[in-house]
Write a protein that binds this DNA or RNA. Structure first.
Length: 508
DNA sequence: AAGCTTCTTAGAATTACGAG
DNA sequence: CTCGTAATTCTAAGAAGCTT
């Protein structure tokens, strides 16, 4: 018996398993944000489809928005005697719709394959796939095996659209999934009532907000959280689990109520006892400067350069010689501060912004080297994991080998301002965060990240790259995205200037 | 989505020690 | 000397939190 009506989907069930309130919002006031992982997934999905379109016989592709004919057509394909592969087949059971990425006909039944654009099996996938297999089976399909398809991290793109080795489809998870299938019907029974529930469930924020997926409704939940004047111990960066446990047991929320001698966490890039310093700064509501800051500043040499990269994790690499999730730099911005009495200005070299030139990495470094000249301190925020590690990877590239010495010199001149701040500065307005966007809120500047319709962070810069390398994107949209990227990256380097200037001014 | 780095934790390996 | 148990130390894998 086939039904064409449904209330739930697999995605909605997963929402509900994470948080009932999230699902309630999905039902009643849904927002769906575009993000770069969706683009990675889509591009990987394309390659998966290409792979199974050859060598298996006839296939049917039901890709596209759901409509009621798809359930019937899927069933026909299953019952046919000549269709061997089905993409995006639709199945409904217990008011729940699922779409199966790939179904392959086997001797006595079908194999279900689910494509994920990660590089390995993750525990949450089992639940995800169990929902599908449960429903597919209940629709009368004999599923004989279940596999996960994921990205092979070691794949190197050699050009010519050859992605054969990108796809890893050797991960058989049949038995793991079967164990979970039993629970699916109770998930559905629990979650369906939320579709007609008038009021949103009363659930306060917590770890579930970002686990396993970042929830897009957090601003709504935050708005109705009870307001307090106290600063929670939870703002402490790298707050140790032990401390969390202790505070939970003692019912402590206020950072000031945490015994100071328990704040013992140490971390590279942060001053000794930085948790104690944070606590003290919030207690007296005053910024903290280390006594060593003066010496640190003495090490800097004019001209100062402020440097920022944007990179993209491609997922499916499109540049020859690159790997999945390899950090492909596609933009830099540099501001130059000649000397203390001069004004800050953009680098003489035009900022770099390219997307899919096969020689993008060489062009990126060559122009960057010109922009930062030979002398002077280069500042970059969180430079270690981003700018410096990207430059180190570039050194290994054939088309950049001739620049190795110059890249090394650049790296030597680079100062990580996140470490500089971590070791020397804290302001209560930073609220326990050391990212540039938080620090800038605490110091005088005319940089604001709060403007509407802007690129607000690195993930959105990555999204822009995907939009710009998508051949379906219209020209106007491309121009807009380029402008947004240019503004965003320059904003970061300018913010960097205000940060360094503030640290210097505090000692004049 | 990944990388990076530390912190946590489960399990293995080692040690200690009394009993047979 | 071996065995069983318990306590301790070591190690490796995973999680957490921060970045793009």
């Amino acid at each position: 018996m086939i039904s064409n009506n449904y209330k739930l989907t697999k995605t909605k069930i997963l929402s509900g398993l994470q948080c009932h309130k999230k699902l309630w919002y999905d039902f009643h006031q849904q927002i769906s944000k575009d993000n770069h992982s969706i683009h990675i997934g889509n591009r990987f999905g394309e390659e998966v489809k290409k792979k199974y379109q050859v060598g298996y016989g006839k296939f049917k592709d039901f890709t596209g928005p759901f409509d009621s004919t798809k359930v019937k057509d899927t069933e026909e394909a299953i019952n046919s005697d000549n269709i061997n592969v089905i993409f995006e087949g639709a199945f409904i059971y217990l008011d729940t719709l699922i779409r199966a990425d790939v179904l392959i006909r086997k001797k006595n039944g079908w194999e279900l394959l689910e494509a994920k654009s990660s590089t390995k099996l993750k525990s949450e996938y089992i639940e995800d796939i169990a929902i599908q297999s449960f429903i597919v089976k209940k629709c009368g399909v004999n599923l004989t095996s279940i596999k996960l398809i994921h990205i092979n991290k070691d794949f190197i793109y050699e050009g010519g659209d050859n992605y054969e080795d990108l796809i890893n489809d050797t991960n058989d998870i049949t038995s793991k999934v079967i164990l979970k299938e039993k629970e699916v019907s109770s998930y559905i029974k629990d979650l369906i009532p939320l579709a007609v529930e008038k009021k949103s469930p009363n659930i306060s924020m917590g770890d579930h907000c970002n686990n396993p997926h970042t929830c897009d409704y957090q601003s709504r939940c935050k708005a109705i959280e009870p307001k307090t004047n106290i600063t929670s111990y939870e703002i402490l960066p790298w707050c140790p689990k032990k401390l969390k446990k202790y505070c939970l047991e003692k019912k402590i929320k206020d950072l000031q109520k945490v015994p100071t001698d328990l704040l013992v966490s140490q971390r590279e890039g942060y001053v000794q006892d930085y948790h104690k310093i944070i606590q003290a700064a919030h207690k007296c509501n005053k910024p903290w400067f280390s006594p060593d800051l003066k010496n640190a500043i003495k090490e800097f040499n004019f001209p100062y350069y402020f440097m920022d990269f944007e990179y993209v994790n491609q997922g499916v690499p499109i540049i020859k010689g690159t790997q999945p999730y390899y950090r492909l730099p596609f933009q830099w911005s540099v501001h130059k501060w000649e000397s203390i009495d001069k004004k800050i200005k953009p680098s003489d070299e035009k900022p770099f912004l390219e997307f899919d030139d096969q020689d993008i990495e060489r062009r990126f470094v060559e122009s960057l080297l010109k922009a930062v000249g030979e002398n002077g301190t280069i500042f970059a925020h969180n430079a270690g994991p981003v700018e410096i590690s990207i430059l180190k990877k570039l050194k290994e590239k054939d088309n950049c080998k001739h620049l190795v010495d110059k890249i090394d010199k650049l790296i030597e001149r680079t100062v990580d301002t996140q470490v500089l701040v971590g070791e020397n500065f804290y302001h209560p307005k930073m609220n326990g965060k050391y990212k540039l966007k938080e620090i800038i809120k605490a110091i005088p500047s005319d940089v604001s990240y709060e403007e509407k319709d802007n690129i607000a962070g690195g993930t959105e810069a990555q999204l822009a790259w995907f939009i710009l390398t998508d051949n379906k994107t219209l020209k106007n949209e491309k121009e807009l995205q380029k402008k947004l990227l240019t503004d965003y990256c320059a904003k970061d380097t300018l913010a960097l200037y205000y940060l360094v200037k503030h640290l210097m001014d505090s000692y004049v």
